[in-house]
Every structure is written in C-alpha cells, then in structure tokens.
C-alpha cells in the first residue's frame, strides 16, 4: 500500500509538473457526451404579457413586475422548456425520494406552545399580545406599465 502510494504520488507530481496532455483512461469519454436538444422539439419561446405578469406579481408580491423581472422570467421559462421535449410517457412523477416510506405519526399530546414571548420575539411590530398587520384584501396599487425599467426595485 505504501509502495503504491509513493509510486502514484510521484506519478501525480510528474504530471503536474509537466502539464502534459496524455491519453485518458479508456473509460473516460474523450469528448462531451451530451445529447444536443433538438431545437425543433422545443416549444416556442414564451413571451410574458401584462396580464400574466400582473397575476404573478399578485401571487408573489415581490415588486418585480417590470422589464427586468419579465426578462428573468422569460429566460427561466426558456431554460425550463428544455425538459418539455423529454419523453415521459408512462412515467410516474417522483415527488419525494421517500415515496415508499410512510409518514411518522406523533402522539396527541401537548409538547409545544405557551411560549408567546419566544414566538413574538422576532416580530418587528406587535400590539400587546398580538401581531399587527395592515388591512388586507386591498388590491395592489397599479404599477406603471411593464415597459418601465423599475429602478426602485432593489439592485444590489
């Protein structure tokens, strides 16, 4: 084992120093083995319209319904489209690698709670024992058209 070690260390050093290109191990593929995505297989690139971005913004509330947001989104969709052409007929979705295992059930006893102080310790605004929220169910104030590059959204 030690002999082998010394031998190989020397070999590695040799190769490092020389920086030679050499023949690869036969099992290592010499060239990339990637199935190029068939361009025809891809669905047409999705363009996001005003309605969709407004819907998404309402569902996301990240103030990103602007040009930059749309660009990112369209890019993400384009990348995701790579999987749409894959043949998955007869394949069941795999939600979790633990799908064959079963859910642990705990006993019905009180083991938590009664820790209001801890639960509320990180809340920025509280009112006595309550959390505080503004009034809800008021739709977002309409933003400017999506063509504006909204600089007010944080760029870090």
């Amino acid at each position: 084992m030690n002999r082998l070690l010394k031998h190989n260390t020397t070999l590695i050093k040799f190769w490092c120093l020389q920086g030679n290109a050499r023949l690869l191990n036969s099992k290592i593929p010499p060239i990339p083995v990637v199935k190029l995505t068939d361009e025809n297989n891809l669905p047409p690139q999705t363009k996001i319209n005003q309605e969709t971005i407004e819907l998404l913004e309402r569902l996301s509330l990240v103030d990103f319904a602007n040009k930059r947001g749309i660009e990112r989104l369209e890019d993400a969709i384009k990348f995701a489209d790579l999987i749409r052409g894959i043949d998955t007929s007869g394949v069941e979705p795999m939600i979790s690698v633990l799908e064959d295992r079963t859910l642990y059930l705990r006993d019905d006893i009180v083991t938590e709670g009664n820790c209001r102080k801890e639960v509320m310790s990180n809340a920025a605004v509280t009112e006595e024992e309550y959390f505080v929220a503004p009034q809800g169910n008021i739709p977002l104030i309409p933003r400017d058209s999506l063509l504006n590059d909204n600089k007010s959204s944080k760029q870090k």
Partner: peptide, 10 residues
C-alpha cells in the same frame, strides 16, 4: 408600509 397587507408584503 401600512396601506394594506399586500403593499406591506410587496
């Protein structure tokens, strides 16, 4: 922000 929950969240 406190005009509405939505505005605060966003």
């Amino acid at each position: 922000e406190n005009r509405s929950t939505e505005e605060l969240y966003a």
